[in-house]
Each structure stands twice: as C-alpha cells, then as structure tokens.
Design a protein around this nucleic acid. Structure first.
Lengths: 214, 214, 214, 214
DNA sequence: CTATAACCGAGACGGTACGTCCGGTCTTACG
DNA sequence: CGTAAGACCGGACGTACCGTCTCGGTTATAG
C-alpha cells in the first residue's frame, strides 16, 4: 500500500536554502488534523476516510496527499502530540510506584480520550499495511518504553531491582498485557489492573535480598 | 459492518428436522476456504477481498455471502481448525515446562504458518469493526486461555503455585507479551522468548515455600 | 483516450448461447440515455460529465463504464435515434426539391432540438480524441450521405443530372456549408439557406441540355 | 468557461504613456507560445493543458493566466501568425485559378503544419465553450473570407462572374467543404480536391454569357 | 421418477472511496 | 512589481470492492 512511512515533510526545519518555495498553509494543516480527530471521535475508526477529512476540513484531497502518504499517516500526526502527553519520567523513589503511575496515566489516555481508539485503529492498519508498523513503533511505542527503561535502570542502580535483568523482556511483560486488553477488550484497563499487574511483575524483578528481608 | 458474528450455518450438525433443504455444496465450501488461505499466504491480509476469494474459488459472491457474513467470518472459519491445532493440555509435571511447551507450540503456529498473518489480520478487523471482537475471542483466544488456566490450577493443587492468584491476570501476563510482539514485530517469537518469559513470570506465581527452599 | 469506438454491446441480438449471463438492466440503460439528453439540454455540452449522468440517472458510474467507453459514446447512443429521424428518401420528382427537403428537415433537427448541440459537441470530441471520428461518421454522417447519393443517382438515371459527376465531391459541397455554418455560427441554418444553397449547387450538376433548354 | 475572448494585452502597440508598469517578460511570452506549439505537435490537441505548457515553458501558471484567459486563447495567439501566412490576394487574372491557388495554399497550411491540428482543436473548443466562437472567427476565418470576397468581387467587375451573386453563400460553398473534410477526415485535402471543388463551383457563379460562349 | 425449489456460477447493479489530474486562484521569495 | 514555483480548493476522472440483486442452469430430495 504505502511505501512512505509517515508524512512527507513536517516543515519543522526550513533547512539551508530549501528552494524557498515550500510554504505550507498552516490553516489547512491544522484543519486537517482537527477534522481527523473529530471524525475519529464521532464516527469511529472505520468511518474515517480521506474524503471525509478533506470535506470536513474544507480542503482539497490533493492537499492531504501532498503531505501525507495515507490515512494512517494523517492519524498518526493527529495523535502524535496527544499520545506523547503525560509520558513524564515519574520519581516516587519506588519502582513499583513509578510503574504504577505511568501505567495509570497511560490508561487514562487510552480509555478517556479518543487517542485509544486512534491507536487501536493504527495498530489495525499496521497489520493490513505492514510498511506502517515501524513508523507506528517509533511514534507511539518507543518513548514510553524508553521512560520505562529508565525507571528500571534507576531501580537497578539503587539496588532495588535485581541485576542482569533482560530489560526488553520486562518491558514487554509490562506493556504486552496492556495492549492485549486494549485490543481484545476482555477486561478493563483501570487503576486496579495497573496496580495488580505491577505488583505481580515486581516480584520477578526485585533484588533477592529485598525478598529475603521481607 | 457486520452484525452477524461469524458464519451462518456450518452444517456440522444436521440438527432435528433440518428443513431438509439445506444442501450445501461441499466443493464450493472447501474451495472458498482454500482460496482464502492461499490469498492470505500469497498476497497478505490487505489484498484478501471477497471478490478475489470468489474469483479464485470459481464461486459466485452470493455463495460466500449466503454462508458467511463478512470477510472476517470466512477467514475465521478458514483458520479455525488450524488455530485450534496443538492446543493440547501438556503434562510434564512442572508448570514452568507446561507453559513453555504451549507457548512454543503456539509460536510455531504463529510464525511458521499463515495462521499468524490471519490472526493478526483478524485482530485488525476487530478494531475497525468492533462487533467482531467477541467472536474472535471465542474462536481464537478462549480455548488457549482455558488450557492455560487448567495448567495453573493444577499447579496450585499440587502446591507448586501460590494460592489466591488472580488467574486471569496471570494469563494476561503470559499472552499479552506474545501478542504484543506478534503485532508490533519489534522482537521475535522464538523458543528463547518462550523460555525467558515463562521463567520470568514463574517467580511471581510460585509458592513462597518453594522459593524459600531454593 | 478511448480505443473502444462506441458502446460495448447493445444487446440487440442475444445471439446463439451467449454465455447466458449477459442481462442488461433496461431501466438503467434508458435512464442513462435520458439523463444524458437532459443534461445536454439544460447545461450545454461542456457541463455533461459522467458523474452528473450517473447521479441524475441514479446509477453507479461503473454501470456507465461497463457499457460505454467514454462520455462521447454515451452521447452518441443517446442521439443515435434522434439523429436518424426524418432521414427518409424524398421523392418529389425533382433533385432540387429532394435536396431542399432533406436539408430543411436536417436543419429543423439541428436547430430546433438538442441534437444539434449534441452533434457539435461530438464533432468537438472527435478533434480531441481522434479515435472517435470514424464512429461518428458511421453513426451520424454516413446515412445522410447515402440518402443524398441515392437522390443524385436517381437524378442521373432520369437524365436530370449530368453523367460522370464526382458524387462524393457533390455531397461534400452540399453538407460542407451546412456544418460550416452549424459549427461557426456566422449565419443561420434556415429554410432560405437550404433553398439558396441547393439552387446554387444545382447549376453545377444539371445536365447541360437541361441548362441549354432553360 | 472564458468570458474574455482572447488575450489580455499583446503589447503590440506601446501606445501613449503605457503606465510604465507594463513590462512583460518577452522570454516567458515566447517560451509559452513555443511550448504550446511543441506540445500540440508532439502530443496532439487533447494533451495540451495549461500545466503542461507552464511546465515545458518553465513558467509559472500565473504568468499564463495573467496574459491569456484560457488555453484556447494561448493557442490562438500561438497560431495567429502561422494561420495568417500565405493569405495573400492572388492575381492570376482568372477567378478559378485565384480560388484554386488560395485553397491549395490553405491546404498546405492545414495538412503539412501543426496549424491544422491547432485549428481543429480550437473549433472543438468553441463547441464546448461557445463564448470562444466569435474570437475564433475573427482570428482565423474572417481574413480568408475577405480575400476570397475580393477575388469574387474582382471577377464580377471583370464580367467574369455573374452579377447579383450572394457572395456570403458562395464563400460558404467554398470553405464549407474544406472544413467538413478537415474535421471529419473522410477524404483528403489535396490539390486535386482544390481543383475539383473550384471547377465544380465555378459553373454556378460564372456569368451566363461565358457559359453560353462555351 | 419426476418436479420443484434451493443452490450454484456469473456478473450487473447502486454505491462509496480511492488516488490522480487539471483548472483557475493565491502566496511567497527572488531579481 | 513581474516572475517561477508551486500550494491551495474544487471537481471530475476511471478503478476497485462493497453487499444486493437477478439470471439461467444444476441437483437432490419429496411427492
């Protein structure tokens, strides 16, 4: 389907002497992202289509295709900011509480805002068009994993966590169940789940002398 | 999209007084399922469409719609048998080994056969058409969770596992990371992963006296 | 543009065992032709487009493309019947009166009905897409030339016209000025023009003894 | 389509006090006309579009729209000079030979140069956008008719042609068949046709005593 | 042992959305 | 300020599939 991964030029850096004429209409740009978010909220992922976005944003379809390669790319940009929100490195002093906090913040984002629907739709898209999966990981998965990795490394330094942990595995063990529930909807993403999951996983990663002391 | 969950009559049980006139052409039935599987393998999920299935199976589109409600329903049936394969209750005497074995068998299915692509595609479909998600869980998720639950319960009875475990949480902790990797493709589903994941999770579920004994 | 000349199957003869399944919806067929004629009348040739025809006829665009190769082909069929109307072989006994009559009938068709606009538009189309010109001649030019040729041949047999006339040239001399005025609109196509033109041309084709006798 | 008839200022006469700000880039002007002629020759009338002209002439589209109202206007200007070429008043002493000569010169222009394709395309355009037809007549039809009218009037003065001729009708009878063949392409525009047509028409316009004398 | 009705293949149908092309306007930076 | 470049809105293009709807033809019980 699309070979271009995401968007075709975010115009963030005008670069050095970029042929001058590259001006992008900010009105249109914003209107497209806004229309996309609205449609997602109102109609659900399946009913978001380029024509509807263009029509609602009062924009030519060509203007969308000029800057994005496909529907998924537009949605990715529309939710990039949203999805990055609240991904702050917590510092409660306890790994268990840090993890619990980032998960609870994430659950709020996924269940109380349109972002959850958007991300599920995007994951769906990556299955239908495999060329999108890497861009999706970069945009929406990587940074939360990175924050989590930092929390874990800090725990190891403090002696709170066992040395020699396979951090990637631990991170998969944290986020896997989250997305599993998010996508299959067999159980809710609530605060209780965050607490239970973290307190369950923490056992496997705590330093043994801590365990001994209990 | 579809309100019908799956297929409209698999003719498995002639039932009581089947109205007699229920003659379904087995040639067509099989050809459709075969064509579906072939297309999935050859072209990928995105290029499987009803018209392509009908054309390849040399079948009228109506014949597909007569027996299934949508593309997803056809694919579900086409892979129902495949996906159920090897979901046997193992009995090695050790929960760790039991879990490892079912995961490794599952990984083979997901990575060495078309079934993996099919199931990822179906999960995608459930995001676009939410009415499908329950049927998907019933067909492809439930039975493996059940087998896993049995393994865990047996471990508790044996005293190998801690009492009072939230089994649903544990099962999410096992399968979540699997689907997370399967869908996002950031790391492989191989035997090493199965072993590492299980040996990591087992710590949190083992009975404490076992731990003490170690 | 189009390689297909006109329409893709008028279904006039079901032929011998024509694969059976070729049924064409007469409701749609007629609705398309009707919508085309209406649009031509209401909006003029330049505003007739496939989308407008489809929309007005409450028909899918595909249904149009299934049976015709392009807009021009639809319009040709829509006006084929109209354009053939009144192309009867007159028989007044005099070549001059015969010619005058067919011209006056033609002028009525061209100036009092939508057919004139349609034919001018089609001639335009043949200039833009040269592959259409032959079909246009077959449909709209040939038969009137044939009738005219018959009138002239009859005149020769009767001794009314000179032998050895280049009939094709004479026919060009009759219809050329008609289309010239029709397309360039510098002078009207009225009964007076028909009479003047014919009485002017007749001199060049009359038998010399007739001339001498006058 | 266009309400402006032709071009918006050909800068032929600098006039009195040209407002100073009238500097038109001659490089662009010529490049546009050249590109137009090339495209017409290479791709045919149907593929000439403003974007293609602009791109080939390395000119902004705006520069085209600033000086011309539509594609047709550009083409008209591009061929105005060409089309006027060889429209000289001949003077062989014989109307028949004069007419034959101007027709043969015209045929060369129409069949050996791109001008023929251009003029046919322009006639097509006048059918789709009726507001163009008058400009077309002024530019490409009028002057040849005028020359022809002069030839005929000279013939009348000389006593070679009958008095009281409807000259407009005669001129239609001369050029009608030419454009008829040019547009419908059912027969060639060659020297033989010019001779035959003229010698056919001359009979109807010759003075009767000339006829009697023969 | 028909006959009759559901099934079947084929594919036409009304639609929706696709991604592209071009028309004509507007905006920016350069010369 | 005219220009090259090209983004912009809009509208039509021709295509791909959707899910529904006829067609005849085939087939396998029910009468």
């Amino acid at each position: 389907m699309s070979q271009q991964l995401e968007n075709k030029g975010t115009q963030t850096l005008p670069s050095v002497k970029e042929r001058a004429t590259r001006r992008r209409n900010q009105r249109s740009h914003q209107a497209i992202l806004k229309a996309t978010a609205e449609l997602l909220e109102e109609k659900g992922y399946g009913d978001v289509c380029i024509e509807a976005i263009a029509s609602r944003a009062r924009v030519g379809k060509q203007t969308i295709y000029r800057w994005w390669s496909c529907k998924a790319a537009v949605i990715m940009e529309a939710f990039a900011t949203q999805a990055a929100r609240d991904n702050l490195l917590p510092d409660t002093g306890s790994v268990e509480q840090d993890l619990c906090q980032i998960l609870q913040q994430m659950f709020t984002l996924l269940t109380k805002t349109t972002t959850g629907v958007a991300l599920c739709g995007l994951i769906a898209e990556t299955q239908i068009d495999p060329s999108l999966v890497e861009a999706f990981r970069e945009q929406f998965i990587k940074s939360r994993r990175q924050v989590t990795r930092t929390i874990l490394e800090r725990g190891i330094e403090r002696g709170e966590l066992r040395k020699g942990l396979n951090l990637e595995l631990v991170i998969d063990a944290i986020y896997g169940p989250v997305w599993y529930r998010m996508l299959l909807k067999h159980a809710p993403l609530d605060d209780a789940f965050a607490e239970e999951l973290v307190s369950f996983l923490i056992v496997g990663i705590q330093a043994t002398d801590v365990k001994a002391g209990s």
